[in-house]
Design a protein around this nucleic acid. Structure first.
Lengths: 159, 159
DNA sequence: TATTGTTATACTCTATAACTATA
DNA sequence: TATAGTTATAGAGTATAACAATA
């Protein structure tokens, strides 16, 4: 039962493809992966304190300051004072930010449809992927093996 | 044919899981994703000029200099002069580097097996994944849509 | 003249710690 | 006293450009 386990490498390959696509995507736009991630969260949450964004993104407050600075400079978001708590700055999408997100959501939808267009047994595949995701989370749980996970995702997936 | 296309999001979720695992993996080891990637390539290629590593990793020569510096400081690789071309420095795995790679390959194998252990129809799933990979590369080809790809990998996959 | 690797410089993401302004 | 966001500092990955040594 040893040699035939290509599945893991296939998943790594998928991760690599998606990551590379994302990295190449933001050229000249002033956007980056991290900044766009913040935009997605902001679109989902609505106007938010940087506080909440840091929690949503699972990054430090300092990091959010930098991302919002850059997005503000690019015209994608704006900061406004909180009506009652003057410590808080509320971040909102600008018109450009909204338009950008609308476009991205549209493109995401198109790609999503294009990926499965004409594919047989899509629902069964979705079930298989759910099972793989479930197993992946178990298998990568550090306690499962003595290792910290590292070896798992051999960095082929990283570039 | 619109609403049911979960597959793309599932793939993004897989990418996010693998990336997160990889990021968490290198704690205190002096290794990182990029450095480990170089080690994998080096293990595959054998002793190589930095030149070749830059090509294999698809990264600038400057970048390789930094990665090799760090790996050399950590004792994972060593630089040696090329026998005939004195411009070239040949990078090799040290004993520690070899041992580290052997361990990682072992762990990778274990995870690979653990992922599919007891799973039904593994070969069919592998075929489905191959098809998805193929389609992914087509769908993400920039020319396919007017976009640069960005929207594709909504950065949920990035953190 | 072309190539290898380096130094110089710069940008991005990320973190912790110290500090300010507010609650 | 605790919280929100900032400045200060630092490490890591990445890039281009200029430069040295060598082909």
């Amino acid at each position: 039962m040893t040699q035939q386990a290509r599945v893991f490498d296939q998943l790594l390959q998928i991760a690599a493809i998606l990551q590379k696509d994302m990295a190449q995507s933001f050229e000249g736009t002033g956007l980056t992966g991290a900044r766009t991630h913040l935009l997605w969260e902001l679109a989902a949450l609505g106007p938010s304190p940087q506080n909440a964004l840091a929690a949503a993104l699972d990054v430090s407050a300092r990091n959010v300051t930098g991302l919002v600075d850059a997005l503000e400079a690019g015209g994608y978001v704006s900061r406004a004072p909180h009506p009652t708590d003057r410590r808080i700055s509320v971040v909102s999408l600008t018109g450009l930010g909204e338009a950008t997100m609308a476009r991205m959501q549209r493109e995401h939808q198109m790609l999503s449809e294009g990926l499965v267009d004409g594919l047989k047994e899509v629902e069964r595949i979705e079930g298989d992927l759910d099972e793989l995701i479930r197993r992946l989370q178990i298998v990568l749980t550090p306690e499962t093996f003595e290792n910290g996970g590292t070896a798992a995702s051999r960095p082929e997936a990283a570039s």
